[in-house]
């Protein structure tokens, strides 16, 4: 049977800051029987909070160009980033529903010989893995359950982020924005334990242009989340968004310059595809874990991989 194909939207932070997440995603989807097709010439999604705050007309036009690349290829889009999902999915919804907007955008796209047609869907990796692939199939791919050497499951603090779940009128997740469960189930399918913690659904602090404009404010969110995760006994945190990933990973280093009161220890940060990669038997070096700002070795040691 031919492999099912998806257009892989890379965005910015994953290919240009955390390429290990890109590698992990490519390997995980190959294992699950999908072919990821490159979207040649794609750009920034562009970022929903920050770009949408400057000029929504430019935001929707650039997003439509990206969508048109997938339409040419003829496959739905897969993204492993909440921000890219937020932009591409919302733009796709707006363009499908509003003829006036579609005309506005297509008038611009015509100048570069492109057209938005509305023929593809945008899938977030969390929703796609949960609904299309299914927890059972992921469990079957696990060669090395995320268990410590004493046989206990690795304790993982799940961070959903915002634009996977909200605004719920346009997102495709089956989750409730107030009490989601899909990512917890996907983490537990790998043999780990998802630990509950205070304000689990809270934002990482990076979005909406706050990270670039008000770094200390954004890190104040991040510090609170990391402390809450540690308080609950988490041994690492996982996310489904390279921007949240960067905020937690680099943010734990940055916060040392901004605050006296710091989390009692560092918490390693993994994108879900990297955790799945480890459980599916991939080499930690291949997932570029050594390039993270926060050392992942303590987790790898517990798993008997370092």
């Amino acid at each position: 049977m031919a492999k099912k194909k998806l257009c892989f939207f890379l965005g910015c932070i994953m290919p240009n800051r955390y390429p290990g997440v890109e590698k992990a995603t490519r390997l995980v989807f190959e294992k699950l029987g999908y072919e990821l097709v490159d979207m040649d010439g794609a750009s920034c999604c562009p970022a929903p909070g920050v770009f949408g705050s400057f000029d929504l007309k430019t935001w929707v036009t650039i997003a439509a160009r990206n969508l048109s690349i997938a339409e040419e290829k003829g496959y739905d889009i897969l993204t492993v980033c909440n921000g890219c999902y937020g932009s591409l999915n919302e733009a796709n919804h707006l363009l499908k529903e509003n003829d006036e907007l579609r005309d506005f955008v297509n008038e611009k796209l015509a100048e570069i010989d492109r057209e938005y047609k509305g023929t593809v869907e945008v899938h977030h990796v969390d929703t796609f893995l949960y609904e299309e692939v299914g927890v059972k199939k992921i469990e079957k791919q696990v060669e090395r359950p995320l268990e410590k050497e004493d046989g206990e499951p690795l304790k993982v603090a799940v961070h959903y982020g915002c634009h996977l779940l909200k605004p719920s009128e346009v997102t495709d997740t089956p989750d409730s924005p107030e009490d989601p469960h899909t990512l917890d189930e996907l983490v537990e399918a790998l043999g780990a334990e998802s630990v509950d913690y205070k304000d689990k659904i809270m934002c990482c602090g990076a979005g909406g242009g706050v990270r670039s404009r008000e770094l200390k404010v954004s890190l104040h969110f991040t510090r609170e989340k990391i402390m809450n995760m540690l308080e609950a006994g988490a041994e690492c945190t996982t996310n489904v968004c390279p921007f949240c990933h960067l905020q937690f990973d680099r943010g734990q280093v940055e916060m040392k310059e901004h605050f006296e009161k710091l989390p009692p220890k560092e918490l390693p940060v993994f994108h879900y595809c990297q955790l799945a990669g480890l459980a599916f038997g991939m080499d930690p070096d291949e997932l570029a874990l050594h390039t993270h700002q926060i050392d992942c070795t303590p987790v790898l040691e517990k798993l008997g991989l370092a």
């Binding site: 890379l10 290919p15 040649d40 010439g41 794609a42 750009s43 430019t58 036009t61 650039i62 100048e111």
Partner: peptide
């Protein structure tokens, strides 16, 4: 990566769009 980083003509498309808006 196979994005505007690799394809000059793709970057030119984005640049044309930002001029138009």
């Amino acid at each position: 990566p196979p994005t505007t980083h690799r394809y000059e003509e793709a970057l030119e498309e984005v640049q044309k769009l930002v001029k138009l808006t």
